[in-house]
């Protein structure tokens, strides 16, 4: 369920800069591997996507 959510958007591949889901996943993965913190990862991921949408108008 994760992989399609990150790279597919409305049925087609999207590796563009505006695919926030994909780019937010990178620091989220880093934090998850480093801290093993489940809720910390969720909070960071959601925070990044929310911030990205707010500042970039995505």
């Amino acid at each position: 369920m994760l992989a399609p959510a990150l790279v597919l958007r409305e049925g087609s591949f999207d590796f563009g800069m505006d695919n926030l889901f994909l780019w937010a996943a990178i620091p989220a993965f880093a934090l998850a591997i480093k801290t093993r913190s489940f809720f910390g990862t969720v909070a960071l991921g959601m925070g990044l996507v929310a911030a990205g949408r707010y500042f970039l108008g995505g």
Binding site: M1, L2, A5, L6, F21, A24, A25, A28, F29, A32, I33, R36, S37, F38, F39, G40, T41, V42, L44, G45, M46, G47, L48, V49, A50, R53, Y54
Partner: peptide, 20 residues
């Protein structure tokens, strides 16, 4: 749900679960 990134709760959660 988009300004709050609630639609990202599930992907972010999977990342956490996977890394664990």
């Amino acid at each position: 749900v988009e300004p709050l990134a609630l639609d990202y709760a599930l992907p972010a959660m999977f990342i956490g679960l996977l890394a664990m």
